[in-house]
């Protein structure tokens, strides 16, 4: 069930991101970029899955003898954390850049920008 929900969420996010990316308004394009990079993050999290409740899957707890609970995969979380930080920086940069484009061209319309040589 979780898998289906996650798959649907990732699919919907990518669809929305792609839709926004193809808009004429630059701000929407930036939104699209942000959503696509978040979609990739959700997908990364979904790739980790849940480790079974055995000592082998949680080496940290292996020597302590107590109950080993089900755990989420820590590796993908570390990856996603890195990816979020990078994505944040990139989104900020893209926003600044779109403001600069507006300052210089007086428009945020992609089609009008494309006409200028």
């Amino acid at each position: 069930m979780t898998a289906i929900v996650l798959a649907a969420a990732v699919g919907a996010l990518f669809a929305l991101g792609t839709f926004l990316l193809l808009q004429r308004d630059l701000i929407r394009v930036v939104w699209g970029l942000a959503i696509i990079s978040q979609a990739a993050n959700v997908y990364l999290l979904a790739m980790g899955g849940i480790a079974p409740a055995v000592a082998d899957s949680v080496p940290v707890l292996a020597g302590h003898g107590g109950d080993v609970p089900q755990t989420a995969d820590p590796v993908v979380q570390a990856l996603v954390l890195t990816a979020i930080v990078i994505g944040f920086g990139m989104t900020a940069f893209a926003l600044v850049l779109s403001y600069r484009v507006y300052e210089e061209h007086g428009t945020l319309d992609v089609t009008e920008l494309g006409d200028r040589r």
């Binding site: 696509i36 990079s37 993908v76 990139m90 940069f93 893209a94 850049l97």
Partner: peptide, 25 residues
């Protein structure tokens, strides 16, 4: 303007890179 195109394209590229990496993991 060139920078905006370049950033957009490469951000999409980065997302695709993550898809490949996640899938391989």
């Amino acid at each position: 303007r060139a920078a905006f195109w370049y950033v957009t394209l490469n951000l999409v590229g980065s997302a695709v890179f993550l898809l490949g990496v996640g899938g391989i993991y």
